[in-house]
Amino acid sequence: MTESGAWWTLLAAPAMLFCLAALAVAANSVLDARDAGRSAGPAAAMRPFLALPRALLTQPRRLPAPDVLLWRAGIAIVPVAAVLSTLVIPFGNVAVADLSVGVLWFNAMEVLTWAGLWLAGWGPNAAFSLVGGYRFLALGLAYELPLMFALISAATGAQSLRVGDIAAAQQGLWYAVWMPVAFVVYLAGVLAFGFLGPFAYPTGRDLAGGVLSDASGVEWLLLQAGRWLWLAAGAAMAVPLFLGGGAGPLLPAWAWSLIKTLAVLAVLVVAVRRLPLVRADRYVELAWVVLIPLTIAQTLVPALVDLAR
């Protein structure tokens, strides 16, 4: 049974999310070094974090007539929403607050990135950035509904929107096993709301970085942090939704949560590197014609199982 945590979980949850994200960045950097023919040691893992002092030292830039308020707000929304999503993600048997509408909360936070990235694209009054912001909206129209149906499949299986209940309902058989479509679509959704890898369309290099093209210093840092924090949050949420939460033999619940989260995170990092980018204009058609019917069919399975119980 998942319980709501004490006050210190308010600090522990973001801290753990941050560590997971940093771990993903480090792993990605090591794989980068290996591909590029450099030595792939611990030094390579630490190199991306040199961007931190660099971003803090950077002088601000003044663009002609930017929408500073919306720009800053948009950029801040991405990492802040990622942190807020951890409210309902249980670690072991403890969540910051195991809301009765936990799944909905996670979903709502993830949708906030729509606003965040679009505003981040609109704010600087720059063409590449603007196109990048709109790209995310088009991408959102494609990835969001399959993701919602994937979340609902898990909720239907447990007949509850409480994340703790969903984890507890997977006694013996993980949802990832008998709802594989929902699981895969959910993982694709994580990459999409983290705008990484195959879904890095809004920050595409063909747009000189898109929404990142005119972000420098802290703005750049927050957006980059936001996408990796989201990847970590998505990996952590996959565990209670599809992998039975903290349940497992021998080890305590928190250890199982950690192991499973790291495994999902590893899969996601590999996917980020292995898959080429999918543009929204192609993905929309696939999402609506194939993924949405598939995920609806997937939702029907737990609904029928519920009736048979």
Partner: peptide, 8 residues
Amino acid sequence: TPVDAAPF
């Protein structure tokens, strides 16, 4: 002091 930049 912000640097006077142009959008890329």
